[in-house]
Design a protein around this nucleic acid. Structure first.
Lengths: 128, 128, 128, 128
DNA sequence: GTGGTCTAGACCACT
DNA sequence: GTGGTCTAGACCACG
């Protein structure tokens, strides 16, 4: 379904969260679509069920998905737009940190911008 | 000297690393400039000396600073240029993750781009 | 598991690093093999866990091992190939220093060469 | 006189010791030759006099030089040939460590051997 | 004074 | 269980 890298420094449950959000953004997953069950996804990704559970719980908290008892988990109908100040500060810090890192990798602002465009293209392009 | 946020999810030593790199990028710290000693910075930030030590060690490894035995730590003369494939992949993932997060915060690509410009301005503007 | 000499002038964490690299080179440890956990190795060697941690962190940075969160540390699949100019200069200095020392011990070039062959044999010979 | 690198990881006093031994080995300094005084050498190298003192003391202990009160320091007449088991073990460890490092830098045994020959050539060639 | 190593022990995040 | 961060405090080598 999607690639999980156990060697990645980012925790697996976070990778799952991001992958699902990404698929929604790309339109691969649409509002109302049903997600695989915790156990199913766990066996697909060969990770622990608790790890998937943690991802789903967090996704629900963020209102990206909705879980209905006895039915399963579904992509939420209404995209959440509650933006907390905290989140904005967090993402700004993350961006700044990335830019400093890229600067130290010898990339000019232009090169960084090109990289950003590239990533944005990927995100809007629907993949199989 | 610079702000350390104990409640931040990122480890303290990483925050120190980023702050110093940022100050170099802004031109506040220039090649050859002496950094505060490990113990000094530790007491300034009210963190443990070992934590500062860890940051300095990593900065030296990245060739951002040079330490001279018995003398102290200094901003490196030669900007480092060693880039590993791993680093590039990491930073791309980080960017993508930020963009997905911003999308979920309801920001359009244009708004994201404006945000990026703003952060870049901050990074090139010398602060007091 | 392997010998650590507290009286050795070289730091313990460096001795651990070298021992593990040596075992990989000899083929005793193979790509994918799991290493003892930080705490296990610490108690085996009767050193502090932080000391072993430091060694593992550095080995990961050098891409000799990979650590997987919650699972443990493993010998890396891909042999690392990142070489910095600095490292080459360092190792040349170390060699020169050794040769000067051996000369002062009254060893001729031939004797030195014989010694080198002997050490190389040891390194390629798989030990129990 | 000879190059001292404060940024080098090796202590300055050790660099001085090695440089003097190297010059003796190359024949630039011959038995009976007078060395510069501690203060002279210190100012030549722009290092602390205590540091040079430490180097001279160690060189005398190793019987590489002889100091005569009121006269100065001289290269020893008899090359010392006392070899302690300890020294041999030390130098073997150093060599092994270098070889492992070179192996990890992707150098084959042949390449290492070529490197060794090169260093040996340098050591026998009298320089200005 | 400086950096660097090491210990002991706590606490956290992840699986 | 695993690695990872952090503190507090000791001791050493170097200049």
């Amino acid at each position: 379904m999607f690639p999980i890298d156990a060697r990645d420094s980012r925790p697996i449950y976070e990778q799952i969260i991001d992958q699902i959000k990404e698929q929604v953004m790309k339109g691969i997953l649409k509002p109302g679509d049903q997600l695989p069950s915790v156990r199913q996804l766990a066996s697909m990704l060969t990770v622990n069920a608790n790890t998937v559970m943690k991802a789903y719980t967090e996704l629900e908290r963020q209102e990206v998905i909705e879980t209905i008892r006895g039915k399963g988990a579904f992509i939420a109908m209404m995209p959440s737009k509650v933006i907390s100040e905290k989140q904005i500060i967090e993402v700004r810090k993350a961006l700044k940190s990335s830019f400093v890192a890229m600067h130290y990798m010898g990339m000019s602002k232009q090169e960084v911008m090109a990289e950003i465009e590239k990533i944005y293209d990927e995100l809007s392009k629907e993949e199989e």
